[in-house]
């Protein structure tokens, strides 16, 4: 730094070398306001490369004709063609509705079960540490493993779940859970909830550690029962963490088709067809990347709207 100043104080350069001497120029540069931008450049480039470029490319794709198995005409700008098609596409609307059901009920169950598990584990009961690890196991299973495991357990011929349900008399005969449109979505949601509720457990447990125990003592003395304490202390104190968990999970649920890909592939008869799966099929079995891009953009916009509305409604930003 001091060197930079010393150089700046020198008389004007006398030789041509001085005019292009990189060290001298670098020194001068470090004294200007551009220096800051120069230092930011590497991270800006990185962000541009890994975040901005794919996002912009995805948007651009949605206005482009891009069918990998029909090279002629690819790359042409087609304006809102894909979006117009979408409006008239009954499968899109069905997928949108199914996505709403899939996400809403999955989140609800995951949150409630995750909360109950976290509250139970937070009591430091005997064996709680072992239980805490066990309860997290589902989350560590890859989707593929969890999906295939449940597909097998729910199988209408050899599935152990059917066996149990028939034996305890809840079912008359083995049921093909994923072949009946009335149970396919619910069963898929059950598997999804089983797989991901530990995510809520994990985050809520972390949040619970941050709530001062004095608050519960004070509430005990004030006469608040367990439910009132949950409603008036625990949940409000967890608001930020719950909001973060819900948003992350909604993003995951909206974007990731892998569990449904294994369990149902959208069937039977599209009764579990969701947007992510539809986009996936459009891209990788119809090779229509333009339309798939448009579907992704719609999902992206819906997610942004959801996150914005949710943050506003849950008042996470307050105090």
């Amino acid at each position: 730094m001091s060197r930079g100043r010393a150089m700046a104080a020198l008389p004007p350069p006398r030789s041509t070398w001085d005019a292009i001497n990189p060290l001298r120029l670098l020194g001068e540069l470090s004294e200007t306001r551009y220096w800051m931008y120069l230092l930011l450049l590497p991270s800006a480039l990185l962000i541009t490369a890994i975040v901005l470029f794919p996002t912009v490319y995805g948007f651009q794709l949605s206005f482009t004709e891009m069918r990998l198995n029909r090279p002629a005409g690819n790359g042409a700008f087609v304006g809102l063609k894909h979006y117009q098609r979408m409006l008239a596409d009954p499968i899109f609307w069905l997928s949108l509705r199914n996505t709403a059901v899939w996400v809403t009920f999955s989140i609800l169950i995951e949150f409630v079960v995750g909360l109950v598990a976290a509250l139970a584990l937070n009591r430091n009961l005997w064996g709680g540490k072992v239980l805490a690890v066990l309860i997290l196991v589902p989350y560590f299973l890859p989707n593929v493993v969890a999906g295939n495991m449940w597909a097998l357990m729910l199988d209408s011929r050899v599935g152990v779940i059917n066996d149990i349900l028939v034996n305890i008399g809840l079912l008359q005969e083995y049921k093909a859970w994923f072949a009946d449109p009335n149970t396919a979505m619910a069963t898929a949601i059950f598997v999804e909830a089983w797989h991901s509720f530990p995510f809520f457990t994990l985050l809520i447990m972390a949040g619970l550690k941050g709530i001062p125990t004095d608050l519960y003592k004070a509430a005990d003395i004030d006469g608040a029962g367990a439910f009132a304490q949950l409603r008036l202390i625990t949940l409000p104190m967890l608001r930020t963490i719950i909001a973060a968990a819900v948003i992350l999970r909604v993003i995951g649920l909206v974007n990731s088709p892998d569990l449904l890909l294994i369990l149902t592939q959208g069937g039977p008869g599209r009764s579990t067809q969701v947007l992510s799966l539809y986009a996936f099929q459009n891209a990788y079995s119809d090779f229509n990347f333009g339309y798939a891009g448009a579907l992704s953009v719609v999902m992206f916009v819906l997610l942004m709207l959801f996150a914005w509305a949710y943050i506003r409604l849950s008042k996470v930003n307050q105090d």
Binding site: G266, G267, G269
Partner: peptide
Amino acid sequence: FPGAAGWAQNTVLPALQQILIGQA
């Protein structure tokens, strides 16, 4: 033909399923 596999998987199969489950 180009698109055959996608058509069979994403159109033909769901259509059959819809008959099987009584939705079509």
